[in-house]
């Protein structure tokens, strides 16, 4: 069984700027893989190449067993892409956005599918409002909801939480977990370390066009010298304070805040 995503020796330049200098990684079926890196590291270029929007200069990449350069149509039929900026139609309502994608994906019972997705992504109340009135977090949730329609095998999420406030970020994280629960393979890019740690089964750090390390969160942590035991006063983080004040909407499994 081949991997859901396999990338070997991927290179891409724009003019004389070498963005990717030989990228290798594989993503197992049904897992969440985070590509972690600072801005300009080449994360978006990797995603756009895998989504058939860019042609690689060298190397190969396959998605769901199809070559991204030679079997573009099969790749596109297997994937969905949520780009860096929520590509939702502001003039349409949330529901109309979902129906549009459902029709373009040739999903039978588009209306039912749209209603179910609205429900799962907590957008039912806003379904018939124009997207122009949505908050950043709602747009992102709608954006990801659009990606799930038609049950794509592989989902690309390019910086799904950039620019969102902490609560909206948690909402998006739950959506990503929802998507993974459907059995899709997810590749997400982020420059937030905690996001990668929280969501991903495996993390690869992309820096300067190359993968520096690739492993499970535990493996990455083990790369540094073993932790020493120190006693420090436990100060609430500002995030703890924020959630204590506005009401905690985080998952019950996470640390529920030092002040409560």
């Amino acid at each position: 069984m081949t991997a859901a995503i396999a990338v070997r020796g991927l290179e891409k330049s724009f003019g004389d700027q070498r963005v990717l200098r030989g990228v290798d990684f594989e993503v197992e079926h049904g897992s969440i893989f985070a590509l972690l890196g600072s801005n300009g590291a080449g994360k978006t270029t990797v995603v756009r190449t895998l989504a058939t929007l860019l042609r690689p200069d060298a190397g190969t990449a396959s998605v769901n067993g199809f070559d991204v350069a030679r079997q573009e149509a099969d790749v596109r039929a297997s994937i969905s892409l949520t780009g860096q900026y929520a590509a939702v139609d502001e003039i349409l309502t949330g529901r109309e956005n979902l129906l549009l994608v459902a029709r373009l994906r040739h999903v039978p019972d588009a209306a039912d599918v749209a209603d179910r997705v609205l429900e799962r992504f907590d957008l039912t109340d806003a379904a018939n409002r124009r997207v122009a009135t949505y908050s950043g977090g709602m747009r992102r949730r709608l954006d990801i909801a659009m990606s799930l329609i038609g049950a794509p095998r592989v989902i690309f999420l390019d910086e799904p939480t950039t620019g969102l406030d902490p609560q909206a970020r948690l909402g998006v994280w739950r959506c990503v977990a929802e998507a993974a629960a459907q059995g899709a393979t997810i590749l997400l890019t982020t420059h937030y370390l905690d996001e990668a740690e929280h969501l991903a089964n495996r993390i690869a750090i992309l820096h300067d066009g190359r993968i520096l390390v690739n492993g499970t969160p535990a493996e990455l942590k083990a790369l540094l010298p073993p932790s020493r035991v120190e006693y420090v006063e436990r100060q609430p983080t500002l995030e703890d304070v924020f959630f204590a004040l506005v009401g905690d909407e985080r998952n019950p499994t996470t640390d529920s805040g030092a002040l409560s």
Binding site: A51, T52, L53, A73, R76, A77, I79, S80, L81, G83, Q84, Y85, A86, A87, D89, E90, V101, L104, R105, M146
Partner: peptide, 13 residues
């Protein structure tokens, strides 16, 4: 500019 063309481009249409 809104990335909508790109979204359509990445779909099998």
């Amino acid at each position: 500019q809104a990335g909508i063309v790109e979204r359509f481009q990445s779909m099998s249409i």
